[in-house]
Design a protein around this nucleic acid. Structure first.
Length: 484
DNA sequence: ATGTAC
């Protein structure tokens, strides 16, 4: 059963709030015909309607062009709730808290990297472990892990991982002082203390990419991207088992207390905490701590990437110009001020972004100084065989999506269907015939993550651009892939 | 996504 859809504009659809008695606002879907057809094949639209039932939700529940079914919320879902009247739903942030993407630039070109590519991929694979439950080079006592949770990348930099000015190029400078490690369970800490500095599994990866096309040379130059053929490195990872455990812990709290709070929502997976309750504040402090862990995790992975380039090319990473372009969080809730109605009233809101990238336009103070004049970089990874994009946040996002753009291509085939129909050897051979080298911890992942299993990232980027959420700057193609 | 089902 598909919810009723009203077409508002070429790329904007609405599920009216009359669809369900509990809906407080409509749901809006930003997509072209092909993307909306795919959303009809799973529960994406139903979930978007359910999200519109959250207390304190403003304007409309949002599904972005890459939206697909998730836990409670769609992945590619956005909801802004009033900071007093609203509820926070851990399922609207996701199990992988502060899953995100970081991109590094280099001075190297494809021609310089090609001869050493296999060695480079193997070195990264060795230094940055991948796979479910895989542990890393660091084994932190809980007392030290607490510092990671409270400080984020400051901890890493103080301990010799990364450079001081790396912080300038990370969303929120890679550190959230709202974090409180005492709100993270011992069990979460046990899971997190040996996994830090590892890639994980599923769609997580480290990729060597080549600049394929530059759409906006002026903005690209500010990002340190000068020419086609230039080599970049993309890191996609999150908070590993620690963030997963934080989500699990607080979903359990929400489920057990909702009835006594008088909170009834149409899907058990939407379990939510009233923002005025202590339990909600505890979750937010723990979420921020898990976010610090994820930023630190990507920072350590980046450190091993720089080390790998140093080993393979025999030159210092700073001599290779390996600075961060940007690091985005795409599974997180943020406290922001937004226009919340048609009359232009502003309010402080908690914005749930699940599989969704903040895309603030030029001028917002949350954007690091270096990019404040052009807008926030938006990093959209595609599949390992196609391409990835860098866009820049644009004004319409504030009006349409609470300053948000998509986060990826989105799956179009289930993992099990991909494993059944796409043998890893074939996928690998097809990639290698196109000059893409892949190393994976587990062969099944190669099937699950095959390019055919994903939607077309070009369409997602194009729809974002056409809507004015974020403008295309650069397209990259992969040449080396390390996966879980 | 995830010590892939306490």
């Amino acid at each position: 059963m598909v919810p009723p859809l009203r077409k508002i504009d070429r790329l904007i659809w609405e599920i009216p709030k009359t669809y369900k008695p509990c809906m407080k606002v409509p749901a809006r879907i930003f997509a072209d015909e092909s993307l909306i057809e795919k959303m009809k094949t799973d529960s994406t639209l139903e979930q978007a309607a359910n999200v519109a039932c959250l207390p304190g939700v403003y304007k409309y529940s949002i599904a972005l062009p890459d939206a697909h079914q998730g836990y409670g919320f769609p992945v590619g879902g956005v909801a802004a709730v009033d900071s007093n009247q609203g509820t926070i739903s851990p399922g609207g942030i996701g199990y992988d808290i502060n899953c995100g993407v970081r991109v590094l630039r280099t001075d190297l070109t494809e021609n310089e990297v090609r001869p050493r590519l296999r060695e480079l991929v193997n070195t990264i694979f060795e230094l940055a472990p991948a796979g479910v439950g895989e542990t890393g080079k660091l084994h932190l006592p809980v007392s030290e892990l607490n510092k990671v949770l409270d400080e984020g990348v400051d901890w890493a930099i103080r301990n010799g991982y990364g450079w001081t000015d790396d912080k300038e190029y990370i969303e929120q400078n890679g550190s959230w002082d709202f974090a409180d490690s005492s709100k993270v369970s011992q069990r979460a800490k046990e899971r997190g203390k040996d996994e830090i500095g590892t890639i994980g599994s599923g769609n997580h990866f480290i990729e060597i990419q080549v600049v394929d096309k530059i759409f906006n040379p002026d903005v690209a130059k500010v990002f340190g991207i000068e020419k086609e053929g230039q080599v970049l490195v993309m890191i996609h990872s999150g908070s590993r088992g620690l963030g997963h455990q934080v989500a699990t812990d607080y979903i359990k709290v929400a489920e057990s207390k909702m009835r006594q709070w008088g909170l009834y929502l149409p899907d058990r997976e939407l379990a939510a905490l009233p923002l005025t309750a202590r339990e909600a504040q505890d979750y937010l402090h723990a979420m921020a701590a898990a976010a610090n862990y994820a930023w630190t995790n990507r920072h350590l992975l980046m450190h091993w990437v720089r080390e790998s380039f140093k080993r393979v090319f025999g030159r210092d990473p700073d001599k290779l110009g390996m600075r961060i372009i940007y690091d985005v969080a795409h599974n997180i809730a943020k406290f922001e001020e937004h226009v919340v109605d048609d009359e232009g009233h502003r309010a402080k809101v908690w914005v749930h972004r699940k599989g969704a990238t903040r895309a603030f336009p030029a001028g917002r103070e949350e954007i690091p100084k270096v990019y404040r004049g052009i807008g926030q970089p938006v990093l959209i990874p595609g599949s390992m065989g196609t391409g990835s994009y860098i866009l820049v946040g644009f004004e319409k996002s504030m009006q349409l999506t609470f300053g948000t753009a998509p986060h990826g291509a989105g799956r179009q085939m289930s993992r099990s269907a991909a494993v059944r129909s796409l043998p890893p050897s074939k996928v690998k051979a097809a990639l290698e015939s196109r000059g893409i080298i892949i190393r994976s911890a587990e062969s099944e992942i190669i099937s699950e993550e095959a390019p055919e299993a994903y939607k077309n990232v070009d369409v997602v980027a194009e729809v974002s651009d056409a809507l004015g959420l974020a403008k295309k700057v650069v397209r990259m193609r992969p040449i080396g892939v390390v996966k879980g």
